[in-house]
Structures are given as C-alpha cells and as structure tokens.
C-alpha cells in the first residue's frame, strides 16, 4: 500500500508542478538568504545574554572553568541548599574542576526525584537567546526536558549571531560526526498560555532556566545585558 501511495503521490506532484530539472538547486541558491535579524547589542555576548533574559531565563557569567563551577554551585545552593545535580556524560563537563566549588555532579541521565540538570551547549544563538544541544552520549534528552531547573553552560567561543550561522557550524560538524538524532534550540523555561491566554512557566519541562556564559567577555557584560533587557 505504502509503495503505491508513494508512486501515486509523486506522480501527482510531477503532474501538478512539472518535473524537476537538474537546475532546481541552482535556482534554489539564486533565492539568496533571508535578511539578517538585528541584535539587541553589538557585542555578541551581551546580545545573547539580553535575549536569554527576555526569554525569562536567568544569567551568570564566568571568566574561566573554575568560576563556572562556582557559579553552578552557587545557583544550586541558592535554590536547594544542596550541591546535588546531574550532568550528561559530556567530556567537557567531566573535565570541569568541580572540587573548586565543592559540587559533585552525578553523570548520566536525569532520574525521578532529581531536580537540577546541567548541560553544556554546543552553540549559543544570540538572535534567539537560545542554547543549542544535540542528543547523544554526552547529552541525554531528558536532562534538557525533565528537571525543575535546567542549567546550561555556553562557551563564549560557541556564540553565533543567527540561526543561519548556527546551521553553518552544525553542518560542518555533522559532516565530521554524522547527524544527531535531535537538535534542540532551547530558549527559556517551558511555558504555556493555554488557559485563558495566561502565561505560566513550567508546563511540562523546566520551570527555571539558567544560562552561564563561560569565557572572557567585556567587563560588566552581564550587567549591561540586564539593563538592556530591563529597558525593553
């Protein structure tokens, strides 16, 4: 049945729209690109953090890996008075100097009862204020989707301005590493407005989304992002 449905549908499409010539891809490339969206700030890090805040995420910055684990520890302690969290089997996460913050993550996939998960993003997209993760060994999908608090580390070197830039980088990576099962652009805590249009956070996924930007940024980048987000 499926084969004949396939044949049938393709026959109808060719009839309706003419058969595709060799030059389809050439004509596709002639379409050019969408105009680039404006960013809220010239500085990529500031623009990214500003949009994270607009997405109702919270932000922190960490100049190095030691500062990053301390920022993680601080966040977890603030919310749970504990040091417990789960992190994916990402080599970059395993190599963090966790002892500096007295935090010892459990590495693996989130299990029932665990409230905080940490992911290391592949990319941060300034245009969206989104962190991009790929499903895979180092990044169980449930760690993004099921915790109450989702913390994401984004390396400042992995920031890109637009989705087009993100796909460019990912296409290169996919050529080397193969395509992942899933690519997730995460931009904020899970939300719903399905009851009378009222916005509520924590629909199915995380109620809180915390982004820590790791690496050298201009002084006071976080503060400027906060001011910019508050002003808009």
């Amino acid at each position: 049945m499926s084969t004949s449905a396939r044949t049938d549908i393709f026959a109808r499409l060719r009839h309706a729209a003419g058969s595709a010539g060799e030059d389809v891809l050439a004509r596709r490339d002639e379409l050019g690109h969408a105009p680039p969206p404006a960013l809220p700030a010239e500085d990529l890090a500031e623009a990214f953090l500003c949009n994270v805040l607009r997405n109702r995420g919270s932000i922190d910055t960490a100049a190095d890996r030691s500062a990053a684990v301390k920022a993680v520890g601080r966040y977890v302690y603030q919310h749970y008075r504990s040091q417990r969290l789960v992190a994916g089997n990402d080599p970059r996460l395993a190599a963090m100097p966790w002892r500096d913050a007295g935090v010892l993550p459990r590495f693996g996939a989130l299990e029932s009862g665990e409230a905080v998960a940490l992911s290391f993003a592949r990319l941060g997209v300034a245009e969206l204020g989104a962190a991009v993760t790929w499903t895979g060994k180092g990044n169980p999908a449930v760690n993004n989707l099921l915790p109450e608090h989702h913390i994401v580390l984004v390396d400042v070197d992995d920031l890109v301005a637009t989705m087009e830039d993100a796909w460019q980088r990912m296409a290169d990576a996919m050529r080397e590493q193969g395509r992942p099962r899933g690519v997730n652009f995460i931009a904020g805590p899970s939300s719903t407005a399905d009851i009378e249009g009222q916005l509520v956070y924590g629909a199915h996924g995380p109620r809180h989304w915390h982004v820590i930007l790791l690496g050298e940024t201009a002084p006071d980048t976080g503060q400027r992002a906060r001011e910019r987000a508050a002003g808009s």
Partner: peptide, 21 residues
C-alpha cells in the same frame, strides 16, 4: 513571542552510543 522555548529538529532513531531516545 520573539522566540518559542523549544525549537527542535528530529530525524532517525537513537544513535549507537545514545543514552536515550
């Protein structure tokens, strides 16, 4: 919105080393 919370791209089953999916 300027951006929704989740924009995801899926294709295919879990890969060899994937912990879930």
């Amino acid at each position: 919105q300027a951006q929704t919370c989740y924009t995801s791209y899926y294709s295919g089953p879990r890969r060899a080393q994937d912990p879930d999916g």
